[in-house]
Nucleic acid binder design. Structure first.
Length: 825
DNA sequence: AGACGCTGACTTTTT
DNA sequence: GTCAGCGTCT
């Protein structure tokens, strides 16, 4: 191992950096210092929650650069764009110059996508390959299942994709998959023996489309390095220093790639916390941490156990929770912070009251302890839980923001628009082509498409090539003319690529396709939102090209270019580059941090973040732990680690809430308190808070006819039945996926015939809207004062109803009451 | 081709 | 509660 020396000609920078660096190192404790400055050779940092792991990583990178290592030689891999951006920003601040922009810092996916963009041709892909998000992947799988005439119920895209994804993350190709005895057994057992064949066709189809899915970005990167020694050498030489954040979340492919990359210099530093491993469902394996120590002779291991985030009470509870798991790397977090408040465990009657309780408590804390909105986070296990909080926060006039959920780029209108751009950049992209060929409507209908598709399949041609030769396909008349026009238009767009940037092309697309105009003419509420979204998309493309132009003023060697050529600018702002970037973006990446809002997100999304006050909701059996993850010890332990992550997000105050009943799937459902709550150390818990809202009970939102009790869990000492089930599952595999109750919750009896449908426009005796709503059939939209799913008070009825309101989309702006479901409220 | 009416699937978690 | 998607009718 040779000590890195200052690169020739860079000494002035080195001297300039040296001083602030030294100051910064002083802020580290001994362990952190050790980890940050031991820059040569393999290093594993086992970092507990809140132990300053990001600080160490950034200091380490800055330190490397201070020692004269060029930014271009440093590769730092993270799991979220946010973590990457944050790291970059911090380093920039520490260095006080713009050297950091030359660092390779990004998610595995985005860094590899960037590399593959230069190398994909070696693997037979176009360099402007498309990146398929999961929606695209599912759509491909769906059409394959249809073509193979398999049972679509049995081969749901979600399930099949999950299976393929797991295989890919474990470096198992389609052929190997079909030969693997164990995998085949599993597929037989679940009655899905054709998955191997689907996998093969899926891989072929993606290749034909010139597309890589998320897993391919890793897999193809591995293939590239593994197949082409000269490529491997190039990147080994380039990335002399490799750093990996959240190492416990890496899967087999990621492990192999980083191993290859680091093999030459062995300057690899991984940071992880086995206690926070929560992504095994997507192939992550803690094994990688253990294996790491075996792979290199002289691995240095540094443990960071001092927590700088949370109060003593919170740390104690967290430690107790994680100790229930077997096979952890022994680690004891400690803190010299104050004892703090006890952890509050609160039970409420309903999910709605859980939301109400939290919103009331936030208001109280703001008044009493002068907290701000941005000090609060509400965390939950599943996205669906956000609604109850949302309603109550809105009612309480508290500003909030929900993170996660449907991404901006997943909205239909945005996807449609982007589909055009995708076809322009890569005509092989069949998914995108199918999406836009008749949108907006241009007279290329189902029949024509079927014919074209069949010919494409028969001759193993791409759909686009068949379309180009449409006159030979037997299509004629209006259809042929429509296709001819479509081709002319698309070829015009394609021709723009040589001299126009992504924004200019996107603008032209909007203008010539009539996409923007069509949305503009749609004056309904949703239409307006769609129009705004498309505008927003165009804005963001503009923003991106501007930003790229600035960045491209610096070349690969790090020197600022004087007379930058138009060509360089053009290369940095191409449509293809833009498309590859955005597919890997999530909503969390372009939000403005500074807003004073309460944050709502899943626990997964909260990893790596911290908040003064945290509410964890729905701490109930079947939700947390998830009913789908209690069958094996491994699954349950992952849920427990997730619980650990939730707890350790809190700095000062922590609430764990659970509701006796909640809406789920439109049903009222009763859940027991989570088993995790029973594992908490009593002395650190305060259960004295009542979730009741005083006057609330009785006339609350939900009435129970028959009370609880029927069915439910037989828990208590040793929760026997579940262990039996788990044992059976281990022995015989998971139970057949037939029609069984997906959740073990008790469905509460209702007072009236449930789910009875009532035609509103054929009113029955008991279905008369009262004057309070003023709702009549065929009413003008302008008078509509409520949204979808509005509760309508019914005269003479013992209960309220929920009506679905549809807008007439053509002609006059009229609404129609579609149907209503009878439901107890 | 498009509007309409209705069914059923969804609920782990993310790049 | 919500929504995509299917079949049917115009």
């Amino acid at each position: 191992m040779c000590e890195p020396t200052a690169v020739q000609g860079r000494l002035p920078i080195f001297l300039y950096l040296a001083r602030p660096m030294q100051d910064y190192l002083k802020g580290l404790n001994d362990r952190q210092y050790e980890a940050a400055t031991h820059i040569n050779g393999p290093l594993m940092i086992v970092a507990g929650a809140g132990s300053g792991k990001t600080k160490v990583l950034t200091t380490r990178i800055a330190h490397l650069m201070a020692k004269g290592v060029d930014a271009f030689n440093i590769l730092a891999l993270t799991f979220t764009n946010k973590a990457a951006a944050e790291m970059k920003e911090r380093i920039e601040k520490m260095l006080g110059n713009n050297e950091a922009r030359n660092l390779y810092i990004g998610t595995f996916h985005s860094v590899f996508a960037r590399i593959l963009r230069g190398e994909a041709h070696r693997l037979g892909y176009p360099n402007s390959f498309t990146i398929y998000d999961s929606d695209d992947s599912k759509s491909v799988i769906k059409s394959i299942v249809k073509e193979m005439e398999l049972d679509e119920k049995q081969y749901k895209p979600n399930v099949v994709l999950g299976r393929i994804s797991q295989a890919k993350s474990s470096l198992i190709g389609p052929l190997q998959y079909q030969e693997d005895y164990y995998l085949q057994q599993e597929d037989q057992r679940t009655n899905r023996p054709a998955i191997g064949k689907i996998y093969k066709r899926y891989a072929d189809q993606c290749f034909k489309n010139g597309a890589m899915d998320f897993d391919d970005l890793l897999l193809k990167m591995y293939e590239l390095l593994n197949t082409f020694p000269e490529v491997l050498l190039k990147y080994q030489h380039k990335f002399r220093y490799v750093l990996i954040d959240e190492y416990q979340d890496t899967n087999a492919v990621q492990y192999q790639i980083t191993k290859l990359l680091a093999a030459a210099h062995e300057n690899i530093c991984v940071v992880g916390d086995d206690a926070q491993s929560i992504y095994s469902f997507r192939g992550a394996t803690i094994e990688n941490i253990l294996q790491f120590q075996k792979d290199y002779d002289d691995v240095k291991v540094v443990k960071l156990e001092q927590n700088y985030r949370s109060s003593k009470n919170i740390i104690e509870v967290a430690n107790t929770v994680i100790r229930q798991n077997k096979g952890q790397i022994p680690k004891d977090l400690w803190t010299d912070k104050d004892q703090g408040d006890k952890i509050k465990v609160v039970a409420t009657m309903t999910d709605n009251e859980e939301g109400k309780y939290v919103s009331t408590m936030i208001q109280e804390l703001k008044l009493r302890d002068h907290y701000h909105n941005h000090d609060f986070a509400i965390l939950y296990r599943t996205n669906a839980q956000s609604r109850a909080y949302e309603e109550n926060l809105r009612r309480g006039g508290i500003a909030y923001k929900i993170y996660g959920g449907l991404s901006f780029y997943q909205r239909k209108e945005v996807k449609d628009y982007i589909a055009y751009l995708r076809v322009i950049a890569n005509t092989r992209d069949e998914e995108a082509l199918k999406r836009i060929i008749n949108y907006p409507v241009r007279g290329i209908g189902k029949t024509s498409m079927e014919r074209l598709q069949t010919i494409a399949n028969q001759h193993n041609m791409t759909l686009w090539d068949v379309i180009l030769r449409a006159p030979e396909t037997g299509l004629k008349g209006a259809a042929l003319e429509a296709i001819r026009k479509f081709i002319t238009m698309m070829q015009y767009f394609q021709s723009l690529q040589t001299h126009k940037n992504a924004y200019e092309i996107a603008f032209e697309v909007g203008k010539h396709t009539g996409l923007v105009k069509e949305l503009f003419n749609d004056k309904t509420v949703e239409g307006l939102a769609r129009y705004e979204n498309v505008q927003e998309l165009l804005n963001s493309i503009k923003e991106w090209t501007d930003q790229q132009e600035n960045l491209s003023q610096i070349d690969e060697e790090g020197t600022v270019q004087e007379g930058i050529t138009d060509q360089t600018l053009q290369n940095a702002t191409t449509l293809g580059l833009y498309l590859q970037q955005i597919t890997l973006l999530t909503d969390a990446d372009n939000d403005k941090e500074d807003a004073d809002v309460v944050k709502l997100m899943t626990i997964h999304a909260a990893k790596g973040l911290e908040f003064p006050v945290v509410f964890v909701g729905g701490v109930e059996e079947t939700i947390f732990p998830s009913g789908l993850s209690i069958n094996t010890r491994e699954e349950l332990e992952e849920e427990r680690r997730l619980f650990y992550v939730a707890i350790t997000r809190a700095k000062e105050k922590l609430w764990l809430t659970h509701a006796n009943s909640r809406y789920r799937f439109g049903n009222v459902v009763a859940n027991d308190a989570s088993r995790f709550l029973e594992e908490l150390p009593k002395d650190y818990i305060d259960r004295s808070f009542s979730g009741g809202t005083g006057s609330g009970f009785g006339r609350g939102d939900q009435h129970f006819g028959g009370g609880f009790g029927a069915g439910g869990f037989s828990r208590g000492s040793g929760f026997g039945s579940q262990n039996d089930a788990a044992a059976a599952a281990r022995k015989y595999g998971p139970p057949p996926a037939k029609k069984q109750q997906p959740y073990k919750s008790t469905v509460l009896p209702t007072q009236a015939p449930p789910q009875q449908k009532v035609q509103v426009h054929v009113p029955k005796g008991d279905f008369v809207p009262s004057d309070t709503t003023g709702l009549t059939e065929g009413m003008e939209v302008e008078h509509l004062k409520f949204g979808f799913g509005t509760v309508i008070k019914m005269e003479g009825a013992a209960h309220n109803r929920i009506a679905t309101v549809d807008f007439k989309t053509n002609g006059e702006k009229k609404i129609m009451l579609n149907y209503a479901k009878l439901r107890i409220l």
